[in-house]
Amino acid sequence: MNDIPEKQIRAVHDEQTIRVYQAYSDTIADAALAAGTFVSPPFKMDRMTWIKPSFLWMMYRAGWGFKDAGQNRILAIDISREGFGWALEHSCPSHPDPSMSPEDWARLKAASPVRIQWDPERDLHHQPLAHRAIQIGLCGEAVRRYVDEWIIRITDVTSLAATIYSHVEVGDLAKARELLPDERPY
């Protein structure tokens, strides 16, 4: 029996921060790690950037860092809870409600610099689970706030991802689970 609600934010967090994940190329990751925030260029401030509190969903999206060179570095970004709250308060769904007119949808998107999407959470083999993981798309003002105000710390967790993946590959799921970040309800 699954006791996890269908939609629940689960993340590594403390009283000041919540951790999100992103995957980038070496160029973007190295610049961000050196500066303690994303640097433009090479990071593109004018594009939507998706942050993910779920480590396993990030591993699914980036193929454990092996999917392609543009996602070979997995970064853990600790952001302020205040910033995370702002993002949620200024969000809209990534897709319109079927009852919305195109005009209403356009107005809602224009007024919301953040998109929320709930996708099936993934297990260690990237199989979908019954509950969902939140993906948060930042654009415009939200990207500027993320880069300039919210980021507290950036950590490269690429080697952790590779280590967990190596245990999955040989079937040692107990060891892989032991190494997963402790994501608790937010």
Rank of each mutant, 00 (worst) to 15 (best):
V170E: 06
A111G: 12
F55K: 01
D123T: 00
R122G: 02
P102M: 05
P96D: 02
Q135D: 10
T155Y: 10
I152P: 03
S112C: 15
S80T: 13
T163N: 08
A130G: 06
G137P: 07
Y60I: 01
V147R: 14
I151F: 04
G63A: 08
H90Q: 14
L138W: 07
F55A: 01
D148Q: 11
Q117M: 12
G171A: 10
Y165K: 11
K67F: 08
R61V: 04
D97W: 06
S112K: 15
R144Q: 15
Y60N: 05
W64G: 00
A106D: 14
F55E: 01
H167K: 11
A110L: 15
R132F: 00
Q71W: 08
Q71E: 15
S101I: 05
D172Q: 11
Q135A: 06
P128D: 07
I134Y: 00
P102I: 02
I154P: 12
G85C: 11
G70Y: 12
L129N: 00
H126F: 10
M59Q: 11
D104G: 10
H90A: 07
A69K: 13
T155D: 15
M58L: 13
C92K: 11
Y146H: 12
F55P: 01
F55L: 03
I154A: 15
G83V: 09
A110G: 15
P93F: 01
S159F: 10
S101W: 06
R145E: 09
I151P: 03
E82C: 03
H125N: 11
W57H: 15
G171D: 06
D119W: 03
H131R: 00
I154D: 10
T163V: 13
F55C: 02
Y165G: 02
C139T: 14
S99V: 07
V170Q: 13
I79Y: 04
A111L: 11
L160I: 02
S54E: 03
Q117T: 13
A142Q: 07
I154M: 14
V114K: 11
H126V: 06
R132L: 01
S166A: 15
L108S: 05
I164L: 11
Q117R: 15
V147A: 07
D68S: 15
S101N: 07
E169P: 04
L138H: 07
Q117I: 06
L108G: 05
D119N: 06
E121R: 00
